[in-house]
Design a protein around this nucleic acid. Structure first.
Lengths: 341, 341
DNA sequence: CTGAAAGCGCTTACAG
DNA sequence: CTGAAAGCGCTTACAG
């Protein structure tokens, strides 16, 4: 009788060799059969899959990642979860990657490049299969980290023509420009721009706003109200009141995000300010509730789900080792003209 | 001259042995020093940490998980991300676990027990350090999976006295009861309950509503409007209109969530229905924007961040192998009486 | 088409 | 307090 081995560290787990034994093949063959690698006899594949199912085998992702130097994880780094914008993108990414066996990891940067860099370094240690990042604004160290890792990466929300950089988004500048153009077309002359957070994309919209007003000779820097505070309905209401106090002659407000605009609209309602009679109000993103406001809010509908799906598809293609024909996908935007302007 | 080894699979990664060599100790000692295990000479710890820093060493989580049978991941399973409720909880969990070196993984079940079971089986394969689940309503298989895994687990949002089950939440039943009591105290007689999604917690609030109205002899099942559709502002407006059509004599509505209530309130505004004159409106959760509505919405403030923090702390304690004195933490709730009732 | 050997980068016993 | 050996559960070359 054999004495029990002394050095074992049993985990009670069903392993690949258990499956291999049950199917009467070698672990290598079992591994290949389970991963659907071609070049395994059809009969063996059947046997292995059946054995795996019967034993309730679940591959160990840690062992797999260690052996193959590649996990099935795809970290997605977004600034916030409290903005429905990013939640919609995440849902779409998750929906697209899931059926291909990739696991979406959510990382929140809070608009802080240092936090992003740290997240990146920690996620990269997990040997991710791919990476999804928001925008292009990050530390040089973060950029190096990604480049050196060789992990396929797609950027969300903004566009660039830089070669070797993959991105899916729309022109924030043009969207800001077109919404402003709409206000001008409605005959507005004193159009304010009210923004919070002041992240890169907000500032690109601000540039679009400025460009448009300059084209019409209507630009006045005193009509810009920029707050670095986080965006919220409450802040929108407060900034709207500030604006009314300091610039009582404004006839339109372009809020850089719908939560601000909704707050502004509700404040107008409370103060019995006629919208759009006295003042037109527009927002950005077409978030939930904007079409239900009183009056319904004019805004720009941004392709949130489409960006999630398209960026995930581009990443899938990169992870397969393919070279996409286009490295930049412009998904456009849609002006939603409603009763508030 | 030695021929290069043929079987190497170099990953270009800085490993623990690189650090050990640089610090002139064995890999085991380096490992212990880095993990802060006590029983290593202070001088060595210094040397190892310095070497690690100089080399830019980042431990490989896959190797660590494989060797120790335990990862640093803590999956949190929530029904949705589109409800701010869960986003707030997640933020708080993440904030609490992060400094202890644990990584929060977000899993979304879409209120589907089968999806939850599948997520659980996939996450458990990663040998998580701990687990955070929403509520108690899951498949028997899911329950078994968790129990057999031995992974420490805390439940969120609901309470139970069952022994060996850890939970952090508040009484959904009592909150529903107390809000209804407030409406009764305001002299309302025909109080409707309008709900969507119909998840377990919503139905517990419904029970609280029923109990309260029965106590006052005011219960009328025809005043309940229950829709299995996902909760949203839009749906709230629609259900409110349905209710006005079928039960024109209602004098108060208890919406089971603030998004529904906000939609109802905006619809009332649009239809020029006097709130609270003709009809009182109340919501649940005190989500962003509820205090800014016109009129501001009466609701129940639920301890979202507190639940996130407390559940993460309870889990930290379990992961340390401690046995918490209380296995159930009741965080209570707060009635926010505003102008809509 | 199939398999024996080695290795991925750590940690767990066990010894001293 | 420190270390040599073995092992965690897979996959990657290499051979046949």
């Amino acid at each position: 009788m054999k004495t029990p081995e002394r050095r074992r560290r049993p985990s009670g787990r069903v392993t690949l060799s258990d499956v291999a034994k049950a199917a009467e093949v070698s672990p290598i063959t079992a591994s290949r059969a389970l991963r659907g690698e071609r070049g395994v006899a059809a009969g063996l594949v059947e046997r292995v899959k059946l054995a795996a199912k019967n034993l309730g085998y679940v591959p160990d992702p840690a062992a797999r990642a260690l052996a193959s130097q590649r996990s099935a994880q795809v970290p997605v780094l977004v600034p916030l979860l409290s903005n429905a914008l990013f939640v919609d993108v995440l849902e779409a990414v998750h929906r697209t990657l899931q059926p291909h066996g990739f696991q979406t990891l959510i990382g929140v940067t809070h608009y802080d490049p240092d936090q992003e860099e740290q997240l990146l370094s920690s996620y990269l240690a997990h040997r991710p299969a791919g990476l999804l990042l928001t925008g292009f604004d990050r530390t040089e160290a973060a950029r190096q980290l990604v480049a050196k890792s060789g992990v396929p990466c797609v950027h969300l929300m903004e566009l660039t023509q830089a070669s070797g950089v993959y991105c899916v988004g729309f022109s924030q500048h043009d969207a800001g420009h077109d919404l402003t153009e709409h206000l001008v077309a409605r005959g507005r002359k004193r159009i304010a721009f009210v923004a919070a957070q002041l992240d890169p994309r907000t500032m690109q919209r601000a540039e679009g706003y400025r460009a448009c007003l300059r084209e019409h000779g209507l630009y006045d820097p005193r009509l810009e109200l920029l707050s670095p505070q986080p965006s919220s309905m409450r802040l929108g209401g407060e900034l709207f009141e500030d604006l009314l106090r300091t610039r009582p002659d404004v006839d339109a407000v372009f809020f850089c995000n719908d939560d601000l605009a909704q707050g502004g609209l509700l404040t107008a309602l409370r103060l019995r300010i006629d919208v759009p009679g006295q003042i037109a109000i527009a927002g950005f993103n077409d978030l939930s509730g904007s079409d239900l406001m009183v009056p319904p809010l004019t805004t720009v509908r941004t392709p949130r789900s489409a960006m999630g799906v398209a960026s995930a598809q581009m990443l899938l293609s990169l992870m397969r080792g393919e070279t996409p024909t286009h490295n930049s996908t412009d998904l456009g935007f849609e002006l939603m003209v409603r009763a508030s302007t």
